[in-house]
Lab assay of single mutants.
Amino acid sequence: SLSVDNKKFWATVESSEHSFEVPIYAETLDEALELAEWQYVPAGFEVTRVRPCVAP
């Protein structure tokens, strides 16, 4: 099958004044980091952490 098993990760994104967490959907932690950097670094943010979303 061609289905992709995307998992939810939380990326911590920082600017000079703010820090916030955004959801990233990817297959692996490395891919989540790449996606977060691709989305947020060009906008002037720094991705400081990516972690798996742990269900309660």
Rank of each mutant, 00 (worst) to 15 (best):
R51T: 10
E27A: 13
V22E: 01
L2E: 10
V4T: 13
V50K: 00
L29H: 06
E46P: 01
R51S: 06
V54W: 12
L33I: 13
T28S: 13
E14L: 09
F20C: 07
K7M: 08
T28C: 05
Q39K: 10
K7Q: 08
I24V: 06
T28L: 02
F9V: 00
E21W: 05
V47W: 04
D30Y: 10
E27N: 11
P23C: 14
K8A: 06
T12K: 06
H18P: 01
E21G: 06
T12W: 06
A55S: 12
Y40W: 14
A32Y: 02
L33V: 09
F45G: 03
Y40C: 05
V41M: 07
A11L: 06
Y25T: 04
E21D: 10
F9G: 01
E14Q: 11
V50W: 02
S15D: 12
R49V: 14
I24P: 01
Y40M: 03
Y40Q: 03
E14T: 14
V41Y: 05
W10G: 02
Y40G: 03
E21Y: 06
K7P: 10
I24F: 04
V4H: 07
S15G: 06
N6W: 08
V47F: 00
E14Y: 08
L35Q: 06
A43S: 08
F9E: 00
H18I: 13
F20R: 03
T28M: 03
E37W: 09
V47D: 04
E31H: 11
E37P: 01
L35D: 02
E46A: 08
T28I: 02
L29Y: 08
W38C: 10
F45Y: 13
A26G: 03
V22C: 07
A55K: 11
F20D: 01
F9R: 00
E31T: 05
P23S: 07
A43V: 09
T48H: 04
V41H: 11
V22G: 01
A43D: 09
V47G: 01
A55Q: 11
E21N: 06
W38K: 15
V50G: 02
V50A: 01
V4K: 13
P23G: 06
T48R: 05
K7S: 06
S19R: 11
G44W: 03
V4Y: 10
V54M: 11
A11Y: 02
P42N: 07
Y25D: 04
